[in-house]
């Protein structure tokens, strides 16, 4: 029992140190002020009465900024930890390598995504409270859709970081991967629509979970499997990352 709690305590210690590194000021602070302000301005310059639309207006630009934060601060930052030998120090802790990999995923992808995406929502909920409180469940659903999308981006970026182990290369490749993914979403949707191929169009649409969540809440045309594509891709990338970390990863 004591060894289990000791392991948990050590894991928490590593998590705390790594979260403090990723979310250190002033980068996060400036980003969340700007994003919260942008989201609140966008929903208050027009009389948004729908919680679905309010959450989309606030979170669409936030997701782009979150993806760039994950690419530059989280993923490239992890490559820096590898280059500087700090990750070797993490790995000297009596914790399993996979546990360290999970901690890095939580501290560098899940927690930053959850916090950055939550800040504009909290701001608009205060500002437009009486209008939006009636749809808190919808707002939470849209938040989870954006969080899953962000987690998919982050898991791809972190896999790139541990593979290339170079700060600059990791940053560049992550940003390139983000824009490639976004372009793929648009291209498949466009080609599917132009050719009348419903499967291709739906796959293209399903690459962006917030759109499908929006369709689902608005009773627009969608298929249930479209809601599962992004979570499935996230799990696949995450399993690949954990497998790579446990079997093939070597510190420099």
């Amino acid at each position: 029992m004591s060894s289990w709690t000791g392991g948990l305590s050590r894991a928490y210690h590593v998590l705390y140190i790594d979260v403090s590194d990723v979310l250190r000021p002033p980068g996060l602070d400036v980003l969340v002020v700007l994003l919260a302000m942008l989201g609140a301005i966008l929903v208050s310059i027009q009389p948004v009465t729908s919680p679905i639309i309010a959450s989309r207006i606030a979170l669409d630009p936030t997701l782009i900024a979150t993806a760039l934060f994950l690419a530059i601060r989280s993923s490239a930052g992890l490559a820096t930890l590898i280059q500087n030998g700090i990750l070797s120090v993490y790995l000297t802790y009596p914790i399993h390598k996979v546990t360290v990999a999970v901690i890095l995923f939580v501290s560098r992808v899940v927690i930053p995504s959850a916090l950055i995406l939550a800040t504009p929502l909290a701001t608009i909920l205060i500002l437009l409270g009486p209008t939006l409180y009636k749809g808190l469940d919808v707002i939470l659903g849209m938040y989870l859709a954006f969080l899953f999308q962000s987690t998919l981006y982050g898991s791809i970026f972190i896999l790139i970081a541990v593979r290339v182990k170079s700060q600059a290369t990791s940053g560049i490749l992550s940003v390139a991967a983000y824009f490639t993914y976004t372009a793929l979403n648009l291209i498949l949707t466009g080609i599917g629509g132009a050719m009348g191929n419903d499967v291709v169009r739906r796959v293209g649409e399903a690459l962006y979970l917030p759109d499908i969540a929006y369709y689902a809440y608005s009773n627009l045309d969608h298929e249930v499997w479209q809601l599962t594509l992004v979570p499935t891709l996230t799990i696949l990338v995450l399993v690949t990352y954990l497998a790579y970390m446990s079997r093939r990863f070597e510190v420099l």
């Binding site: 602070d29 969340v32 002020v33 919260a36 302000m37 989201g39 609140a40 301005i41 208050s44 800040t119 504009p120 909290a122 701001t123 205060i126 500002l127």
Partner: peptide, 11 residues
Amino acid sequence: VAISIALVISS
């Protein structure tokens, strides 16, 4: 603090 700054400016 970030939320409070954003609230004042957006308001």
